[in-house]
Design a protein around this nucleic acid. Sequence first.
DNA 1: TTCCAGGGAGTAT
DNA 2: ATACTCCATGGA
Length: 291
Amino acid sequence: MLNLKACPFNLDVTLCCGQVFRWNKIGDWWFGVAKDKVFKIRQVEKRLEFVNVNSEFVCHYFGLNDDLQKIKESINKDAHICRALEKLWGLRLIQQDPWECLASYICATYKGIPAIKTMLNKLAQKFGEKTVFEGYDFYNFPTVDALACATLDSLSACGLGYRAKYLKTTAKKIFEQQFDLEELRQLPYAEAKKILCNFTGVGPKVADCVLLFSLGKYEAFPVDVWIKRVVLRHYNRLLPRELTQKLAKSRKLDNSKYSKISEICRNYFGDYAGYAQEYLYHYERMTNIDN
DNA sequence: TTCCAGGGAGTAT
DNA sequence: ATACTCCATGGA
């Protein structure tokens, strides 16, 4: 049990906003697997209740040690982000496992979130270790070794499509080099990003997601189709006029345009730009998807 | 049926 | 550097 007095947090928003894909709500409890720990958690007012995990892990995993109030003050630059902050207040960035995050976002390219969930659950069922908890089956996210050794066909069978070979190639490279993704945490943002982009299936967008969601680089500002819309609709005043026109025309976002948008937003929102990104991303999706 | 998705790789210029 | 084209497939 954890008292959240003076610690703004919203569990539902945090787990629904599209940063993680393998949490499920059964009744009023959320069930999930994080770093080989299967546990359930629920929020009752300003109280956090959880089973099969300790409060230290919960605090770290859900980013409860971040000073959200202070982060809000630093990113609250205009009326639009202000609305998102109010509507989604308590959303926090989860501290994901780097490998699960990398593999997940390689699979997440050019797919919708429901389809991503299906893919990752199939992957876990087929290649992850099973644990039974309160009568339900749970699966750890597959290890690097497991995916490095998997056949292309068995990966494709999880619905990965052309991403199967990206995932296998990257898993194999990490496996053979015994590469430790955690080491990237010690490097500056730009250097870590460059290294990540050398993996197959990893471009600037996937790299930014991994840096933001699992390596503590809060300045990372991933730009996907939703964020592109947000920028065009609410922040085109920040962009050079020429860039705005190009964006409106071309559907695609090449590396050059991506870097410009991402950097402009990073400079605008500051050290916690990634937090701003997540609020903007979910706010945009909320107001454009009826559910 | 058609359209779109938390993009990236490959190729030609 | 820049522009264009494929890529597989589930979900709406």
